[in-house]
């Protein structure tokens, strides 16, 4: 039992639309899991459930020994448990979602200071170290609007890392980027993976998935249709729907 994220029988609906139907997924420490699937299949919703950005109606999600409250419990107002989980789970969004009114460095130091109550000096030192790691130490005092998309996404990764997360969630991190900037972001992610970070990645970059993933999960119509090593999924998919999805995305 060395799993850090454990999802059992997860059910989630937006009003009358059932998005997730009984998803089961265990993610081990240090594992890199890539989630693939057609758009609208529920893959983004799934990883947004892991840090409580989406509520779910049925099932259990346990992250690092802490169970997330389901919708009923959240209506009563259980914010404490949610923030506890989120402290240890970093998230990177498709649209970066950097804070436009703060400098790059302030973006990174805000949460450590407010949530972990770090001193400004320590937070800034750590922030500069992280910026160096993503290759942006020269841009610390700029505002996000002055950076390119690829640079912004690297800042977003550094911002998430500043909280020392146990798990990193990536929600289509390269989908909003111009093609020439995709690589710089993937390089940073690849480095994270080799350093042993636990990662859950929703992406359409199949080549990247094959290269870094320990396990690939194919989501279809709100369920995990097939999961396995990249070789199993990409080379010998068992399910017909997996095959047709892959032939559609790998064609070009």
């Amino acid at each position: 039992m060395n799993e850090i994220v454990s999802i059992r029988n997860l059910n989630k609906a937006f009003g009358p639309v059932q998005v997730l139907r009984g998803v089961d997924l265990q993610i081990g420490r240090g594992e890199v899991v890539v989630v693939i699937g057609a758009s609208g299949s529920g893959k983004s919703t799934l990883i947004r459930c892991i840090n409580g950005l989406e509520m779910f109606q049925k099932g259990r999600i346990v992250v690092d020994g802490c169970e997330l409250p389901c919708e009923e419990e959240r209506e009563i107002g259980d914010d404490k448990r949610l923030t506890d989980v989120r402290k240890g789970v970093g998230m990177v969004f498709q649209q970066f979602n950097l804070f436009p009114h703060k400098t790059v460095l302030e973006n990174i130091t805000l949460a450590p200071m407010r949530v972990r109550h770090k001193k400004q000096k320590d937070a800034e030192e750590n922030g500069m170290r992280l910026l160096k790691r993503v290759g942006l130490q020269d841009h610390a005092l700029k505002f996000p609007g002055q950076l390119s998309g690829g640079q912004q996404q690297r800042v977003a990764i550094a911002r998430a890392l500043a909280m020392d997360p146990h798990v990193m969630l990536f929600d289509e991190p390269t989908s909003a980027l111009d093609p020439e900037m995709v690589r710089e972001v993937l390089d940073v992610m690849r480095e994270l993976a080799t350093e042993g970070m636990t990662m859950v990645i929703v992406t359409h970059e199949m080549g990247f998935a094959r290269e870094v993933a320990n396990r690939v999960v194919f989501i279809d119509r709100g369920t995990v249709l097939e999961a396995g090593t990249p070789e199993e999924i990409f080379d010998n998919p068992r399910e017909e729907r997996t095959r047709s999805f892959l032939s559609r995305v790998l064609k070009h």
Binding site: G52, T83, K87, M91, N97, F99, L110, A111, V115, A156
Partner: peptide
């Protein structure tokens, strides 16, 4: 934008 709030939430901010 809602994404701003989500980003802050995902960092564990209250």
């Amino acid at each position: 934008p809602k994404g701003q709030i989500e980003a802050a939430q995902s960092l564990g901010m209250t």
